[in-house]
Design a binder for these strands. Structure first.
Lengths: 210, 210
DNA sequence: TCAGCTGCTTGACACAGTGTCAATTGACAG
DNA sequence: CTGTCAATTGACACTGTGTCAAGCAGCTGA
């Protein structure tokens, strides 16, 4: 996968992603990214107004590479609402590790940079639509608890599936990715599809790698 | 509440907390804090090695002020495990808003400063003990789903009650504090005490202020 | 009354990182 | 050959953290 034939903006994005995806590494500076891309630091500013914009562009580039829409597609083929919820949780939960490197960098600047916060929130809006669609499917089925406000249910699902939650369980608590998925599936089913059995099964299984 | 009679380190902590608790404000610098405390910037470094240490000291000071141990005490008086879980979720959930200002500042530097991350994690360890105790009470009662790993259940509860989760629901989604509490109580009961009814009640109620 | 100590101040500096500017180079197209 | 475009070099301003040294004011004890 030589990147010599790519144009400069793409090479920069490519380099940024590579650095961001180093698991342990501290967040790269503009100099780091420029060096990794084989261009001068100023060349970066020639193509991206600033660090935040570069990070945001990197997420968009990454979404294009990973084809996030396609990854989340299977959930749309589900027949029942519960099935759809289950498929969505699985698909998104497995997508998070792919974007975590970049997400980490943006989440880090969000606290100080409102512009970054806005960009990340609109990016998460797409995921929220998936949540809303799953909730809607439950409504159509009548599976959602009676009188439940769909918007509130969507908020809840959206929060449960946030990158922060994934980060806490897998990075801080050291959970296995598969266990995270199973637990979130169970939790979502218990909370939104009144299926508490799904969760009790999961909590009985080992969740940390050796 | 004049602070003229306090010693300098306390005045600095006091000033830091006041600034940190401004809801909308951007995170204060060392200069901001010094100015607010009415001392020179260097005086701050005379008492605290660095910004991170000051923030950590501020949380400790705040815990002393708010008497966190006492706030969480009611949960220890509960008779059944479910009651205890419920009381703990309520107590902690209502404590979060009090510490959010400081928490925000520490969470912001955690991503770059491992020292801050370590400090925050040990601080959260105390809260985790409350989670573990509630889970243990459920185990004693036999209320926890059979074969459930208590440690995994603790991880899950700890994550659900994280400041980040509170932040997402109340700050980003705009939920009412009371609704947050009710939802978390219901979610915890559904997930750990097999009581799905607690949650369905809650989701039917309005959750955003006018 | 003076010496010495303590706590704080003033003002300077180094350093990292972001973002800006101007002059220059090199390649390529008309 | 000339203009244009992309990129380079090297400088600079700015913010924020953290360090250093000299000085000053007030208190204490001989």
């Amino acid at each position: 996968m030589s990147s010599t034939d790519l144009d400069t903006p793409t090479r920069i994005l490519h380099a940024a992603l590579t650095l961001l995806e180093q698991p342990q590494a501290k967040l790269p500076t503009m100099s780091d990214i420029a060096r990794a891309a084989g261009v001068s630091r100023q060349a970066v500013y020639l193509h991206f107004p600033g660090r935040t914009d570069l990070l945001v562009a990197a997420t968009r580039y990454q979404d294009r590479m990973n084809n996030v829409a396609e990854a989340l597609a299977p959930s749309r083929g589900a027949r029942s609402g519960a099935e759809r919820l289950d498929a969505f949780v699985t698909a998104w939960g497995n997508y998070i590790p792919k974007i975590y490197g970049v997400a980490r960098a943006i989440l880090a600047v969000m606290d100080t940079d409102p512009e970054a916060a806005a960009a990340w929130n609109t990016r998460m809006q797409d995921m929220r639509e998936g949540c809303a669609a799953a909730v809607q499917a439950l409504v159509a089925d009548g599976t959602l608890p009676p009188h439940t406000d769909p918007e509130q249910a969507t908020d809840l699902l959206w929060t449960l599936l946030s990158v922060r939650t994934w980060e806490t369980l897998t990075q801080t608590c050291g959970w296995d990715q598969d266990c995270y998925i199973d637990t979130m599936r169970g939790l979502a089913m218990a909370a939104l599809a009144q299926d508490v059995g799904a969760l009790t099964d999961v909590l009985a299984r080992p969740h940390r790698p050796a």
